[in-house]
Design a protein around this nucleic acid. Structure first.
Lengths: 166, 166
DNA sequence: CATTTTGTTCATTTTTTCTTGAACAAAATG
DNA sequence: CATTTTGTTCAAGAAAAAATGAACAAAATG
């Protein structure tokens, strides 16, 4: 048996790993995150041991660039943390597996920023409405007012979601 | 003044229209829908009168194909309805502007199908776990069990959202 | 310090997604 | 019915997003 075979075996993903990763790849795509982010999170989620960047690269067969980039996003969302392993130079990563934490991270990292930029746009829109005297101005003012209400309800909805999980 | 100028003026989007459309374009992109869908919905939302497919094509400057495709999606989500106008051959479209209806449409049209396919994948995963005797099997079983709980909570969350808006 | 290890960044390439427009179908008109 | 109007579909092209990998920086090692 040639050297390296044992290594290759430990590299190959087993059925369960493949299924879990697949599940997360689809999941994150619904949320608008890239495939590699789902792959990495899925692998960490189903791995009993913390993995290094190189472990992730080797097992998923993705580039180091993708892995580094994906981990950065996941760290930003609070979905992975690093674990210190005595005697190891490399960072080792662990999936944060609390649904509440994941959702909160996504809400504050992805959803809130959008809501806030929407807030700014609405302010501009309200200004534009003030000087609108043309045909249909009344209708447009009503609609913009409605957008304001939607915005308010969306903020409340995010809070409700947080409470739901808390 | 050359003929056609009046027509061109009615075609050009005014500032408010542009801002509203922009707002919806960003909004639908967060939801993973294409830009043209946001453009069309935004235009209908801010238009006092029902618009035909050709109106939409002319005012947004997009192709007939995009407009037809975008309207199909919006109809599917319940976000636009057709209004019968006496003496008009063409269909005329109106934005459904009830937040509750829009969210329900999105939930049942986009989110539920994903949850359901997730259900199926989970079933497969559970089967795979049963025959898993390899190292770390216990950990993996725990994780898959956790996925089941997440799935259940997600379904409940969708119901909570519905109730929130109801 | 020189060297090795580790991780990040970013220009380029690849892949995926979206839009276009022409061909087609369906329905109304005269 | 032949003609015109209206709307849809889908192959091809355009645009956008993601992955790659080589160059670089930062830190540990001896």
């Amino acid at each position: 048996m040639p050297a390296g075979t044992a290594e290759e075996n430990s590299l190959a993903l087993n059925d369960i790993e493949i299924s879990v990763i697949d599940l997360f790849v689809r999941g994150v795509q619904v949320l608008g995150l890239q495939k590699s982010v789902g792959q990495i999170y899925g692998l960490l989620f189903i791995s009993p041991e913390p993995l290094s960047l190189d472990d992730i690269v080797d097992r998923l067969g993705i580039s180091k660039g993708s892995a580094s980039q994906g981990l950065k996003i996941l760290k930003g969302l609070g979905a992975v943390t690093t674990k210190y392993l005595p005697g190891e130079r490399r960072d080792h990563y662990v999936a944060q597996a609390e649904l509440k934490v994941l959702v909160s991270g996504f809400v504050s990292g992805e959803l809130m920023p959008h809501l806030e930029s929407g807030q700014d746009r609405l302010a501009v829109l309200l200004e534009e409405c003030k000087s609108d005297e043309s045909e249909g101005a009344k209708f447009r003012k009503e609609r913009v007012e409605r957008l304001r209400r939607w915005h308010g309800r969306s903020s409340k909805l995010l809070k409700t979601i947080d409470r739901f999980l808390g």
